[in-house]
Amino acid sequence: MSTGQYWLVIGGVLFVILNTAAGLIWLERRALALWQDRYGPNRAGPFGLFIVLADTIKLFFKEDWIPPFADKIVFVFAPAVVVASVLMSFTIIPFAPNVMVADLNIGLLFFLAMSSMGVYSIVLGGWASNNKYALLGAMRGASQMISYEVFMGLSLMGVVVLSGTFNLREIVEAQRGGWYILPQLIGFFIFLVAGIAETHRLPFDIPEAESELVAGFHSEYSGMKFGMFFIGEYMGITLISSMVVTLYFGGWLGPAFLPPVIWFVLKTFVFIMLFILLRASMPRPRYDQLMEYGWKILFPLSLLNLMVTAAIKLLL
């Protein structure tokens, strides 16, 4: 790849990701409305598409208020962390045979590292707000994300054992014989659950749990600082969906009548819709139930999955 092409890929990825995240605002509202038997936003523009524009303008023009009791530097810094860490994770995802920003040989570890960096946005945002609800949300968020990171890493190791590499491009290439969803069904399930918890989406959105904690860790945020958390969440959904597709559903592989990028986008959108459907249909578990479910069911299951995969790989 020449330097010009390289910059084009970087710019293209950034453009597509940011616009997908913005478009998801509309998609989620429409899809939620559909599943709840109402219309959703349908006034501005065709199919209500301009609500994205209206929302963005609203976010930019709201008063950007920093509470006088907050720790100002950390308060401003926290929303940037979530967006930066998610965007960094997108660098290692292969969108098509030659379309990826960084062909790292530690790609999967880089993804895990960046997702563990994402915890700081919640923790610091909640702490810097100097508000008891925000602090409670931050503490829940920290413990939830630390625990679910453990199974996330362990469930991914099944894929690593099968393909023998951390490099995501090589993992996709290794799936030419068959997608990893079949041999790694349990791993896929654990990764999906851990991914939902990592992006703190419903049903695992207890760090913000609006019915008990006002808005959780971002209670004090307004304007574009809140917008960063908002966009970061949608980018997180896109990230987890594209990771699922890359690791378990063959990435850009698919029948030749469509170009690889289209296959990747189509598969990713299936999982984005699954995320939205989960939000529409599942109740939120209690906090201790979430931790218990993680440590007592998912953790042994992911260890078992890893051991069985390794044993089968060794025998064959």
Partner: peptide, 18 residues
């Protein structure tokens, strides 16, 4: 490098901050 970020910066420091 990856382990440094995952374990030290990502896990241990989060616990200390917690």
């Amino acid at each position: 490098a990856a382990l440094e970020v995952i374990i030290y910066a990502g896990a241990i420091m989060v616990l200390i901050i917690f």
